[in-house]
């Protein structure tokens, strides 16, 4: 861990000013990603700005919008009655992530910015374009069992590791960002950037911008939602494959569907074409399988992760079946 300056921010505005003053500043909320990567010498902030005590932890409902403060702890959100009722997939995703201890520390805003678990990113000895732009990618021909098959590039195949963002992605969450010109709200989809030739750039956040909240709309579609996670261990592990979905039935057919994937994409992967394929179709195996195939169209596999295509398709079918209540 390199030397750094530690400062406590008195307000979100002060936090942003402190961040802008120094090249390589980092916000500290739960610390669960940042401290880990600082120990790995992957993160080398010159200034760490402690925002953990800013008043941004509330969960509030105004009309049909539920606003989750960026500093709300994962565990508090997961068990919040409004979240459990209106957005079961979000609660399930949070509870499937990490461990009880980490969920008590990790915050919603920090969780969205969780960094990849690619082994070649997480140790400085390897070549990694995300960590050292232009240095190459040791994962392409390395041990890539956990890596992405969607949204990859020749520069990077690191998968986005989180659970929460996948569920939020499916439920069309919006992210509230405080910046120099005030507050802006962006679709969660628009927070993340595909690696392309610049995997070092992961989000659309500008320097000194701070995520202050996540907003979700309470509606019938989101109440019938589900998060399914597949991993080697039964718990305390990142996803090999995960699926978040939501379905609104209209008499016999699917009126609306939402589908997002985790573990397979370089970013939380919204499968819009698969959603379209489901819309208007009767809920059943045929529609689910068609959606599953559509969702994985264009997947590019490497030596050790080809299984993810089949596994993700099966997980999609299972998750849709579960959320539609159509049985086995």
């Amino acid at each position: 861990m390199r030397a750094f300056e530690y400062v406590v921010a008195a307000s979100s505005a002060a936090a942003r000013t402190l961040a802008r003053e120094v090249d390589g500043a980092r916000f500290y909320a739960g610390g669960t990603t940042l401290v880990d990567l600082m120990k790995a010498d992957v993160e080398r902030p010159r200034r760490v700005i402690d925002i953990s005590r800013l008043p941004l932890a509330a969960i509030e409902q105004r009309g049909d919008v539920v606003r989750i403060g960026a500093l709300a702890r994962n565990s508090d959100v997961a068990y919040d009655a409004r979240i459990v009722l209106h957005f079961p997939a979000v609660s399930e995703a949070l509870l499937s992530g990490a461990s009880g201890q980490i969920r008590n520390a990790a915050t919603i805003g920090g969780n969205l910015l969780q960094r990849t678990r690619c082994s070649y990113f997480r140790e400085t000895r390897w070549r990694c374009n995300k960590r050292e732009p232009g240095s190459g990618c040791d994962a392409l021909d390395g041990f890539n069992r956990g890596h992405a098959v969607l949204g990859t590039s020749d520069s990077c195949i690191a998968s986005y590791p989180g659970d929460l963002a996948v569920a939020l992605c499916a439920l069309s969450a919006r992210v509230v960002v405080e910046g120099n010109d005030g507050e802006r709200t962006i679709a969660l989809d628009d927070l993340y950037v595909l690696p392309g030739e610049h995997p070092e750039r992961e989000t659309t956040l500008g320097p000194g911008e701070l995520i202050t909240a996540v907003e979700l709309r309470a509606e019938r579609l989101h109440e019938r939602s589900h998060y399914l996670k597949i991993r080697d261990r039964a718990s305390f592990e990142f996803a090999l494959v995960s699926v978040a979905c939501a379905v609104e039935l209209d008499g016999k057919n699917i009126a609306q569907a939402r589908l997002a994937l985790g573990g397979v994409g370089t970013v939380p992967w919204r499968a819009r074409e698969a959603e379209a394929a489901l819309t208007g179709a009767p809920p059943g195996e045929a529609a689910f399988r068609r959606a599953a195939e559509t969702a994985l169209t264009g997947a590019r596999t490497r030596a050790h992760n080809a299984y993810k295509v089949e596994l993700a398709q099966r997980a999609i079918v299972r998750a849709l079946r579960s959320v539609c209540g159509t049985g086995a």
Partner: peptide, 20 residues
Amino acid sequence: RYGAVVTNNLADYHVPVNAD
């Protein structure tokens, strides 16, 4: 290619957890 362990930590080297 390198002779180095890639799964050199307890997140990537999976020992059973309680739920297993």
